[in-house]
């Protein structure tokens, strides 16, 4: 048995490894000011807009899920989008849960990890760079189900990813719903 096989076998039998993310952690969910009236909560943000073009894509093997979707959007000049459906598989999965300092990453070893559900958005971050934030569920070869946020750089496509993204076209003016 090769070292790699031995490592994989050990990983399959034990619980999946939990460790702090060693990859670039995703940015916080929102960057809006905290509401004055409700300390510690995020001010409600209402963004009016409409849905635009749809993009159907296939991401080929060994491409990272998150950056692959960002590249698909960039190819069509799309800066805001939502995932309408996604079906595919991963070599391995890297899923984050918790937030900030306590964010933890779970890794699930494949190949052949099935992506069961995936939802999320593509939109510019605080620096103006268009980023995908994607969460969902996967299953391994023993039919165990895991969930979390797909960590950038940690989710290589195995056979294929089929995805439908729909462009979101926000109106320019954005104001908090509570008027503050």
């Amino acid at each position: 048995m090769t070292a790699r096989k031995a490592m994989k076998t050990a990983a399959r039998k034990s619980r999946p490894a939990k460790r702090k993310p060693d990859l670039q952690a995703p940015p916080p969910i929102a960057h809006y000011p905290l509401s004055e009236g409700r300390p510690g909560t995020l001010a409600t943000l209402v963004e009016r807009g409409r849905y635009g073009r749809m993009v159907l894509a296939r991401v080929r093997p060994n491409i990272d899920l998150v950056t692959g979707i960002e590249r698909v959007c960039a190819a069509h000049g799309i800066i805001h989008a939502v995932v309408r459906s996604a079906v595919g598989s991963l070599v391995d999965a890297a899923l984050g849960y918790g937030e900030g300092e306590s964010m933890t990453m779970i890794t699930v070893e494949g190949p052949g990890i099935e992506i069961l559900t995936m939802g999320g958005e593509v939109r510019p971050d605080e620096t103006g760079k268009t980023v995908a934030r994607l969460r969902g569920t996967v299953s391994d070869s023993d039919a165990n189900v895991y969930g979390g946020e797909f960590v950038r750089g940690g989710n290589p496509i195995c056979i294929t990813l089929e995805i439908a993204l729909q462009e979101w076209l926000p109106e320019l003016h954005v104001a908090p719903a509570d008027g503050k």
Binding site: R53, R71, V72
Partner: peptide, 14 residues
Amino acid sequence: RPARSRLLSVEAKS
């Protein structure tokens, strides 16, 4: 053999 194009995408209308 790996296909050269790693991302395939087309636009559609709703």
